[in-house]
Amino acid sequence: MSDPILTLRDLRKGYNHGKPNEVRVLNGVDLTVQPGEVVALVAPSGAGKSTLLHIAGLLDTPDTGTVAIRGEDMTDLGDRRRTAIRRNDVGFIYQFHHLLPEFSALENITLPQMANGVADADAKARAMQLLDTVGVAHRASHRPAELSGGEQQRVAFCRALANDPVLLLADEPTGNLDPATSDRVFDALMGLVRSTGLAAVIATHNLDLAARMDRAVRLVDGRLVAGAA
């Protein structure tokens, strides 16, 4: 078996630490995700799934416990190194697309690459390849306001994968879409994930979508348990 892309060990996180109103969100989370594996993270709103994803993606830090990406312990890294890993190795997708409104679909995908030192022509070629994979290459010159909700989210998927990450973290990526559009957009996301072989953790309320991933885990009382229900 390959070495895991993501390893979480005994993650614990609370807010208002040490105060009478302290809220414990994570109480010893353990998770390992292999290359090419898609894991569904199922939890109700407020259970801590966004906190877990933010810690896994180095946007937040746990009170205790460790996060390792490709075997490298992230615990004591400085801000510059953590930022570089987020930019190069981790892709994020949220429920709302957060595309830059003044730029076209193509530009929204080329900009992260150019910020990472990729030449303009190469960045555009990569962006068009990704847009074609999710079926919206014909909308490359359109700004977000000119795209449907499903098209916007597919562009957001492409942006998340623009720098060829090894880990994808998605927080309710189809939660803002109607059921039919959600299904089509999820298929596009899974196509991208399968074609790249990256590891993915996808938070969702939708048990039907969770069942289409490789396995599911539930966040219950701050710990992960196997199964979607």
Rank of each mutant, 00 (worst) to 15 (best):
D132R: 14
L131E: 06
R139A: 14
G65Q: 02
E102P: 00
V42Q: 08
A123N: 00
G91F: 01
I55W: 01
V90G: 06
A105F: 01
T83L: 14
K19T: 12
G46K: 08
S50I: 05
T110N: 03
P62D: 05
G14Q: 07
A105V: 04
I85R: 01
G91R: 07
G149K: 06
D76V: 01
V90F: 02
R70T: 12
N16P: 00
F103L: 15
T133G: 00
A125E: 12
L52W: 06
R143S: 03
P20E: 12
H142P: 02
G71I: 02
L99H: 02
I85W: 04
A43S: 07
L26S: 10
H17F: 06
T75I: 03
G57C: 11
Y15R: 03
A145I: 10
A43P: 03
T51A: 06
L59D: 04
A121F: 00
R87P: 00
A84H: 08
N27Q: 14
L147I: 08
D89A: 12
V29L: 03
M128Y: 07
I93W: 08
A84Y: 09
N21Q: 12
E72Y: 01
S50V: 07
R87M: 13
V25F: 05
E102N: 11
G71R: 10
G150F: 11
A47E: 01
V33S: 01
G14E: 12
H142E: 09
N116K: 02
H98Y: 15
L41N: 07
L58K: 03
G65L: 10
K124Q: 15
E72M: 13
D76G: 15
Q95F: 09
D79N: 11
P62Y: 13
V23G: 01
N27T: 06
H54M: 14
A119G: 13
G117A: 02
P44D: 09
V134G: 00
E107G: 01
P35Q: 13
G135F: 09
L59A: 04
L130Q: 02
R24I: 13
R81D: 11
G117V: 08
D30K: 07
R87S: 12
V23K: 12
D60Y: 03
S50T: 15
G46E: 13
V29Q: 06
F103A: 10
I69S: 01
V38M: 14
L111I: 15
V42L: 11
N88S: 14
G71T: 12
G150E: 09
R70M: 14
I85P: 00
V29M: 07
I93H: 05
N116I: 05
G48W: 10
G150Y: 04
S50Y: 02
L59V: 10
D79K: 04
M74S: 06
N16L: 14
E107V: 12
L53P: 00
V118T: 13
L131F: 08
A43T: 05
D132L: 04
L58P: 04
H54W: 03
G46W: 09
Q34C: 02
D73F: 10
P20M: 07
M114Q: 15
G149H: 06
T51H: 06
A47P: 02
L58C: 14
K49D: 05
A137K: 14
P20C: 09
L53K: 02
D79I: 12
L41A: 09
A119K: 11
I69G: 02
D30R: 08
A105D: 08
F103Q: 08
